[in-house]
């Protein structure tokens, strides 16, 4: 294939790991495409970016992006990214994971990362189910959707993720579906340029486990559903962004505000308390000694 027709996204992917594990019709790949295009549009140096995922279908994103990437333990992408960012403040750290990983097993870390306004971009692909383990109920599965662990229909109230993030302290909160590729790309690019805890929820189909089990058709049908049922409401009060089963999906950029990041607050407090005695960590030294040649 000549370089002329090569997909510009390709060089950001580990093509030696393709094909991916994602099912045909899955929305995660679409979200990754938007992410890479946003990264290209932003003009940022991709080598200065690290991507951190947890466990699950979306957790595999880290493994397919040709960046410094970390596939961590289940639910722990945000605290891992916290350590990575604080130790290496120059890095742009992106957490890319799923609804089960970020809001169930990792739910506590999610609200605290937002509360601290940790300087991370957190992208949550919300497909309303645990895909990798076979379609179990998550904190975002709407009532009364069928899941393998709610065979008679889901009955627990759900998290409204934009509201959870905003009320916990996130400085940037948005939601799109994978139908809204242009808006999503633009929002990711915008978020890459902000500081603090930035949260983008991406509503995405799981054709194999959510759509099929609930007899909702295939992913093309779901794209039509997103198109017909999404309501763009920028700056919308996040109390109004709840998603009901087959109900309307409020999308847009809801929050964009400036709060001190953890590191800024840490520096401000210690500078006030200690004055010139405070020494802030700025990152690892570049002249780390290499091992002896003799060991090679």
């Amino acid at each position: 294939m000549s370089s002329q027709c090569e997909n510009p996204v390709k060089k950001f992917l580990r093509t030696d790991r393709m094909p991916s594990i994602w099912c045909p019709g899955c929305g995660i790949g679409t979200s990754v495409n938007c992410f890479v295009r946003a990264l290209m549009d932003s003009g940022m140096d991709p080598s200065g970016m690290a991507i951190v995922s947890g466990i699950g279908c979306t957790g595999r994103v880290a493994g397919y992006l040709n960046l410094d990437s970390f596939h961590t333990t289940h639910g722990r992408a945000l605290p891992f990214a916290t350590g990575l960012k604080l130790a290496n403040p120059e890095l742009n750290v992106v957490v890319y994971s799923g609804d089960g990983d970020l809001t169930a097993i990792g739910g506590n870390h999610f609200i605290h990362a937002a509360r601290r306004n940790m300087d991370l971009l957190c992208i949550c692909v919300n497909n309303l189910t645990y895909g990798m383990t076979g379609g179990q109920v998550t904190p975002t599965t709407p009532t009364p959707a069928i899941a393998s662990t709610t065979p008679y229909g889901a009955y627990e109230p759900t998290f409204n993720l934009p509201h959870l993030a905003a009320s916990s302290g996130a400085s940037f909160v948005a939601r799109w579906t994978v139908f809204h590729v242009r808006q999503l790309t633009r929002t990711i690019e915008e978020a890459l340029g902000r500081k603090g805890f930035r949260f983008i929820e991406i509503i995405s189909p799981c054709p194999t486990l959510f759509l099929r089990r609930n007899r909702l058709g295939d992913s093309v049908d779901e794209m039509r559903f997103y198109r017909d049922n999404s309501e763009i409401r920028n700056q919308c009060d996040t109390r109004e962004t709840e998603i009901a089963y087959r109900g309307k999906i409020v999308v847009g950029k809801f929050v964009d505000r400036t709060r001190p990041t953890w590191r800024e607050a840490h520096a401000a407090r210690h500078t006030e308390a200690l004055g010139a005695r405070f020494i802030q960590w700025v990152g690892p030294e570049d002249d780390l000694r290499a091992p002896d040649e003799g060991m090679a």
Partner: peptide, 11 residues
């Protein structure tokens, strides 16, 4: 896991 993340960050 935060401490592990920091170790990878270079400290």
């Amino acid at each position: 896991i935060t401490a592990i993340g920091a170790a990878w960050g270079g400290t």
